Amino acid sequence: MRAITWEVSGSQGFETAWIQLGEGVLRARGRVVGTVPEPYWISYDLETAEGFVTRRLTVEAEAEAGTRTLDLLHDGHGRWTANGEPLADVDGALDCDLGLCPLTNTMPVLRHALHREPGEREFLMAWVSVPDLAVRPSRQTYTHLRPGRVRFASGDFRSDLEFDEEGFVVDYSQLATRLTAR
């Protein structure tokens, strides 16, 4: 197990994730503190199946208005539920993307080795906004620029991400910078 901490400029906060990486699978638990759009704390647990496909993301968010929880589950066949309710808008997605969380950029990059090999892939993500934990569809494109460098694009937003050899974000311009090294 290893721990990675990022300073998250997008939320004016910090995130620490404790990560277990195995052959084609990832498990992580994380804690987040942010101040934008409002002060909040988040705890999450992430589990993938083979091929780094999201199996489950559980999130608890605490803000001034109270505590919210999300149990986002992928059935392995392209269908999702949030707290037991079907999410047809994200059917077909393989990955979750927890808003302002650099860890969740790892799964599609590892699955396609985009931090190491040329290629461009478009994905549909089950994107989770923070701190309200609403789940929405998000089309995202990842493009290999050179080893360790991948361009992320979604809508009008673009950012070049730097990844370490294992596939974890080191720098996500406009969003986060890693504070701990291996």
Rank of each mutant, 00 (worst) to 15 (best):
A3M: 10
T5N: 06
W6M: 06
S9A: 13
Q12V: 03
Q20R: 15
L21R: 09
A28E: 10
V32Y: 13
G34R: 05
V36Q: 14
V36T: 14
E38K: 13
P39Y: 03
Y40F: 15
W41K: 11
W41R: 15
I42M: 12
S43W: 13
D45W: 08
D45R: 14
E47S: 08
A49V: 02
E50T: 11
E50L: 09
G51S: 08
R55Y: 03
T58G: 07
T69Q: 14
D71R: 05
H74P: 00
H74E: 08
H77G: 09
H77V: 12
N83M: 05
N83Y: 05
G92A: 08
D97W: 02
G99S: 13
M107S: 09
P108R: 03
V109P: 05
V109E: 01
L110Y: 01
L110G: 04
A113D: 13
A113P: 01
H115K: 08
P118K: 05
G119N: 11
E122R: 14
E122P: 00
W127D: 01
Q140G: 02
Y142F: 14
V150S: 06
A153N: 08
S154Q: 15
R158F: 13
R158W: 07
S159H: 05
E162V: 12
E165V: 10
E166C: 08
E166Q: 15
E166A: 15
E166Y: 07
G167V: 05
F168T: 02
F168P: 01
V170T: 11
L175N: 10
A176C: 04
T177A: 14
A181N: 09
R182K: 12
